[in-house]
Design a protein around this nucleic acid. Structure first.
Lengths: 146, 146
DNA sequence: ATTCGTTGTAACTCTTGAAATTACAGAATG
DNA sequence: CATTCTGTAATTTCAAGAGTTACAACGAAT
């Protein structure tokens, strides 16, 4: 199983908002065009980002405002906003090992810490990158195209 | 989305094999009892572990042999054997961003490295633990129960 | 050689979740 | 109040995990 593409879509959204905010009104329709998906998908993701207090959305007129300086929003913040995964666990444990088996009743205790550590390592890596980095790199990369 | 429980089941299997090998014949039925699932599920996972050359399975008589010293099998080896995830990518990227959009045609280049790094951090953490560690900790923990 | 206990696998169901789509009500602005 | 968006419900499609049944293939013991 993979982590949903809504996460990369969310990062794509932020990049578009920054890149286009002075030239176009950035609506869900506009974003859907760049990302090549359905506007409703975009709106659902925007709602998640809004619920996480990362952005503000203007109704009627349309338009997205980022609530914090880009340098203070990490990939992890976006990841958490998007992944409503069951109590945040990356690894899905088999539900009901047999408590009458010595291995079965201890397997959780044996593995939980290690799995959490692996998940934590991934998340810490996501914390290293901010939307500010992403914006800068995007501008550089697009500039170098020409 | 979460990583399939087949991974924790696989680790459970290895622990059982080591813990019970002198007392019981460890068959897929026996394992299914400890893990509390269906024997066919176990057999499918065993087949994956066999294909990864981690174990040998005796037909007819039943029984599982680990092919390498436990200290030379890491959690990552088991993870790779179990997760047949599309070209090994943890993060699922949205398929077809618009190539006519400057952001759309560059988003992959911008994110791929960072996502790989995050995945790599998680995998490196899994590489730190071997089945030998798991066996020892299991024996300790079960001994401390009494 | 036959029987018996296992494994290997196909086929099917059930459930869940992502993604996409349609439709329309609600809100803001000119 | 008309226009332009967002918010959201309802529905469909698709893929994958997990579980189950059924049975063929295999190996060892008697």
């Amino acid at each position: 199983m993979q982590i949903t593409s809504r996460f990369t879509v969310a990062l794509h959204i932020f990049t578009c908002v920054e890149y286009f905010k002075d030239d176009h009104k950035v609506t869900s329709d506009f974003l859907a065009g760049s990302i090549n998906t359905n506007p409703v998908i975009i709106r659902k993701i925007l709602t998640q980002l809004k619920n996480a207090d990362l952005i503000t959305i203007a109704r009627g007129t349309g338009g997205i405002t980022v609530n914090r300086p880009l340098s203070e929003i990490t990939f992890y913040d976006v990841y958490r906003a998007i992944e409503p995964v069951e109590n945040g666990d990356l690894f899905h444990f088999h539900e009901s090992p047999n408590p009458e088996c010595p291995v079965g009743r201890n397997i959780h205790g044996l593995l939980d810490g290690k799995l959490k550590a692996a998940q934590g390592a991934m998340e810490d890596e996501l914390k290293k990158h901010t939307l500010e980095d992403l914006k800068k790199e995007a501008l550089d990369l697009i500039a170098s195209e020409k």
